[in-house]
């Protein structure tokens, strides 16, 4: 574990989205560090999310440049390794 570089994880969220909270809880429980971008307040982040994911929905999770739309645990576990 120690030899592996930490993956760059970003979660695009809205404050009201329940699945966004679930994703964040999941990552915290796994001990994965991540940054959060609230697309309700941050227009730049919203545009970036739409561009990267082609989606107008949250949560979008970005792991080392690869995006996952929605809280897809199977895919997230795969990307987190």
């Amino acid at each position: 574990m120690a030899t592996q570089d930490a993956k760059q994880v970003t979660v695009y969220t809205t404050p009201t989205c329940p699945y966004c909270h679930q994703v964040k809880d999941y990552l915290k429980q796994k001990g994965v560090e991540f940054s959060e971008k609230n697309v309700a307040a941050d227009l730049e982040a919203r545009n970036a999310m739409v561009q990267k994911s082609g989606q107008l929905g949250v949560p979008v999770i970005e792991v080392d440049g690869q995006t996952i739309v929605g809280f897809n645990r199977a895919k997230l576990e795969e990307l987190l390794g």
């Binding site: 809205t14 404050p15 009201t16 989205c17 329940p18 699945y19 966004c20 697309v39 309700a40 919203r46 082609g54 989606q55 107008l56 929905g57 949250v58 739309v69 929605g70």
Partner: peptide, 17 residues
């Protein structure tokens, strides 16, 4: 779906501000 069509206003509403 996910490109403007949504079934969760609570989740995605703010994206359409």
């Amino acid at each position: 779906i996910g490109r403007g069509v949504t079934y969760c206003a609570t989740c995605d509403g703010p994206v359409f501000a």
